[in-house]
Amino acid sequence: MKSNTQQTPKFGPLEKAFRFIGVNRIHIHILLILVSGVTLAPYLWALSTSLKYRVNVFTETPQWIPNPVNLGNYKEVFRMAPFGLYLVNTIVVVVGILAIQILTMSTAAYAFSRLRFRGSEGLFFLFIVQMMLPVHATIVPNYLIVNKLGLLDSRLALMVPFWATGYGTFLLRQSFRQVPRDFEDAAMIDGCSGLRFLYSILLPMAKPTLVAFSLISIVTHWNDFFWPLVVTDSPAVRTLTMGLAMFVQQESGADWTLLMAATIFVTAPLMVLFLIYQRKFIESFMSAGIKG
C-alpha cells in the first residue's frame, strides 16, 4: 500500500484525455514550470539576497545572481546572535521530543492494536481528540501549567507537551494491526511476549510508519514557533525560529542581506536534508497523510 506511491503508473491515466481537449505534454510542462518557478522564486530570491553586498540589493532591475558573491553576511549574523547555540537547542529539543514520542506511542499503539480491554474505544477517542487540539489551542492553561511545574524558560518546557502524540499512536496502531496474529502466537511459543514482542518484532516491522512519523515530527517541531515564543525568554534556550524572530527585532528591518542570511541559515539544515532524501520525505508525508 505504502510502497506503490513511489512507482510511476505505466501510463498517465488522464494523458489521452488531455490530448482529447487539445492539451499535450508541452502544455502540461509549461503549466508545471510556471507554477514551480513561482513557488521556487521566494526562496531563491532570499538566497540571492543573503549573498549580496548591501549596495547590490537596491538595483533598478532585480539581480538574481549576486555579483560579486558576499559570504560575509553569514559571518556577521553569527557575530550578532548565537545562531550556533540556537541550532544545538533546536536539535536537542527535536530529538528529545521524538525519542520519548516513540516510547509512549509504541506501548499505547500496542495496547490499542493487539490487546482487548474495557473502554478501549473511548480511550482511543481521547487520543484522536488531541489530533485536533494541539497545545496551541489551549495556550493559556498550558503556559500556567508549565509555569507551575517550574519549567518556564527551559528546553524541557519545549518538549514535555509533545511527548504524547495522538497522531503517532493512531498511525502506529494502523501499522501494528497489519501484522498477522500468527506472528504473535509464534512469538508467544518462543517465550517472547508483551514488551519484548513489541520491541523486537512489532516495531521493526512498522519501520516505514516509524520513519514517516519521525520525519513529520522532526519537521513540525523544528518549525514550531508559537510554543517557544510563549515559554522561552532567554537566548540560552532559544530555538532557531525564535532566534530568527528575535534577530529581526534586534535588526529592526534595516539590513535585508543580514535578515535573509539569518532566514536562510534557519531553514538550511532541513532543506539540505530534504533535498538529499526528497523521495523518502515525500513518500512519508504522502503515506502518513492519507492514513490520517
Binding site: 488522464l14 494523458e15 514550470i33 521556487l40 519537521v219
Partner: peptide, 26 residues
Amino acid sequence: LNEQLGWIRDIYRVACFYPTMIPMAA
C-alpha cells in the same frame, strides 16, 4: 503530476513541496 513525466516530475514535486520544510516564521 500524476501523469507520466519522467525524471523531471521529481523536480516539479520538490518545487511545489519544499515550502512545507520552511518554518512559518521564516
